[in-house]
């Protein structure tokens, strides 16, 4: 009797969480899979086989969204993670003045409401009336088409992402750095290691799990970019900053095309799954 109770106890504690997980995660995900194999013909839901996925293959707007998301992933994630690492190392140094202040300052953007951020960026980067272009033109340079130029719009979104999430990644790095024992650095110093060598042979290898974690986290994050693009560029100009997440949102809430959106979301799920597994494998191999 006693042993049986022991086995049940953890499940009893887990049940509420599992129920919520099943209801709000497992069910919608499974339902989306079912939806993606159906279609809505004048309000009648019918089975459609892989028709929605075939639509995706022919949909250039989807391909554009995929491409844009890929660009964000390849360009923005490395830059952000490198910046976060450098800032974390700087702020981890005991010689750095006002460390606590700077740590909070860098972390602050990631806890700001995205709506406020979006409005702020839109106002700041308004091509006609914005403060940023005002400052740029008062320096004698020509105003930057932050929202209307295909490449500048991409850069705008990447700037926003970097500004917003670098601090968050930095905090993760900081905690990683603080788990590295000081003795290692002291020993290295006694052995005559330069600062660069200490970084390369001590910091980086010991930080590897943290780096892997932040890479997977930001990859998933970037693949799901939605709000930043919606609020600042609305996917424009000419879909140049349209992301998969934003296209998904438009397909559901503007077109009310749930079945196509479900197919889109499953492609996104598969993409995230594949990339995450790939990164984890690569990380493990490097470690071995």
């Amino acid at each position: 009797m006693t042993s049986r109770r022991i086995v049940l106890t953890p499940w009893a504690f887990l049940t509420p969480a599992l129920l919520l997980y099943a209801l709000f995660t497992v069910y919608p995900v499974a339902r989306a899979l079912i939806l993606s194999f159906q279609r809505n013909i004048d309000g009648e839901i019918r089975w459609a086989g892989v028709a929605q996925y075939q639509r995706l293959l022919g949909d250039d707007v989807f391909k554009q969204a995929l491409f844009n998301t890929g660009i964000f992933l390849v360009v923005q994630v490395p830059i952000m993670l490198l910046a976060a690492l450098l800032i974390a190392i700087a702020l981890n140094s005991k010689r750095f003045p006002l460390r606590a202040l700077f740590r909070s300052a860098f972390f602050l953007p990631s806890i700001m409401s995205l709506v406020a951020v979006g409005v702020l960026f839109r106002v700041l980067l308004n091509e006609d009336l914005g403060l940023v272009n005002y400052l740029i033109s008062s320096l004698g340079l020509s105003a930057v088409p932050w929202i209307t130029h295909p490449w500048w719009a991409k850069i705008t979104v990447m700037l926003l992402l970097t500004w917003r999430y670098t601090g968050f990644m930095m905090v993760i790095y900081l905690s990683g750095l603080q788990t590295i024992p000081d003795e290692l650095y002291e020993a290295a110093e006694i052995d005559g290691s330069s600062g660069w060598q200490s970084f390369w042979y001590i910091t980086l290898p010991l930080l590897r799990p943290t780096i892997l974690f932040t890479t997977v986290l930001s990859t998933i994050g970037v693949l799901q970019i939605f709000d930043e693009a919606l609020i600042v560029t609305r996917g424009g100009p000419s879909n140049e900053t349209l992301t998969i997440g934003l296209y998904l949102y438009q397909t559901v809430f503007s077109s009310a095309d749930f079945h196509y959106a479900a197919a889109l979301s499953w492609v996104l799920v598969i993409l995230i799954g594949v990339l995450s597994v790939l990164q984890l494998r690569l990380g493990e191999r490097g470690q071995g």
Binding site: P145, T148, H149, P150, G236, P237, S238, N239
Partner: peptide, 9 residues
């Protein structure tokens, strides 16, 4: 999108 690509591209 067409308008934007004609006017800005």
């Amino acid at each position: 999108a067409a308008q934007a690509s004609v006017l800005t591209g």
